[in-house]
């Protein structure tokens, strides 16, 4: 693996851009609430990819394939944990607070 100054500078510039852009969007309220949410999350995911590629040097070359595979596996678990928790807790709140259900029992 050969590191170059160029890679780090590109990564750094992209990170700054991907931090400032959502920050500006939010502080200046440049879009509707739902599109702001989408934009902010998209910037974070792009930032994740940029930093993985330029700083952590995870790429598609065969010798870092295992790193990438284990990372993708972890990513799937992370998504299940986060969205699963939100989904379950949201449903739980919903059923605990529904008055009609309380009456019918």
């Amino acid at each position: 693996m050969h590191l170059s100054l160029r890679t780090y500078i590109t990564g750094f510039a992209a990170s700054i851009l991907l931090t400032l852009a959502p920050y500006m969007l939010v502080t200046h309220h440049l879009a509707s609430k739902s599109s702001l949410l989408v934009g902010v999350v998209a910037a974070a995911i792009l930032q994740l990819i940029v930093q993985l590629g330029f700083f952590l040097h995870v790429d598609l070359k065969p010798n870092s394939r295992t790193n990438l595979l284990t990372f993708v596996f972890t990513g799937i678990i992370v998504v299940i944990i986060v969205f699963g928790s939100l989904w379950i807790m949201h449903d739980l709140n919903y059923f605990m607070m529904d008055p009609i259900m309380n009456i019918s029992h």
Partner: peptide, 12 residues
């Protein structure tokens, strides 16, 4: 962010 970059410089 900057500290991540400067650590990259140390890695160079």
């Amino acid at each position: 962010l900057t500290s991540s970059f400067t650590f990259g410089m140390a890695m160079l």
